[in-house]
């Protein structure tokens, strides 16, 4: 099995990209791969606790929690998340905070890497 690193810059709820990423990550975990998800820019807000669950809408907090339990490694960009006023206590348990160096090292060393920018 291998390692897949996914980088995501797109904002949650205003874009479908995070939904795609979570499904792809789930499929990769189910195949036994290790999956690392790097969140930067507005994507960092998807790791915030307390997202309201409406009847017929996504709830990315629940999806992220489930995938973290299955082994997904979720890392928020340090400067991006703090500049948005989200501190460590407000992030979903298990979400790490690192610098861009972490992403570059993992994107280059992983078996496969996918980068999804802004819309």
């Amino acid at each position: 099995m291998g390692t897949l690193t996914i980088g995501l810059l797109t904002r949650p709820y205003g874009s479908k990209n995070i939904a795609f990423v979570l499904r792809l990550a789930k499929a990769a975990l189910e195949k036994g791969h290790s999956v690392k998800l790097w969140l930067s820019g507005d994507a960092t807000t998807v790791a915030k606790k307390g997202q309201h669950k409406y009847q017929k809408s996504f709830n990315f907090e629940a999806d992220l929690k489930e995938l973290i339990e299955r082994g997904l490694e979720v890392v928020n960009c340090e400067s991006c998340v703090y500049i948005r006023g989200i501190n460590d206590e407000e992030m979903i348990d298990g979400v790490q905070v690192k610098t861009m160096t972490w992403f570059m090292e993992n994107a280059l060393s992983s078996d496969a890497a996918l980068m999804i920018g802004e819309e």
């Binding site: 792809l24 195949k31 496969a112 996918l114």
Partner: peptide, 14 residues
């Protein structure tokens, strides 16, 4: 898609 990324298209953009 996972298989194709892991086995063939190891670097991907959007």
């Amino acid at each position: 898609i996972v298989d194709k990324l892991m086995e063939e298209y190891k670097r991907a953009i959007w």
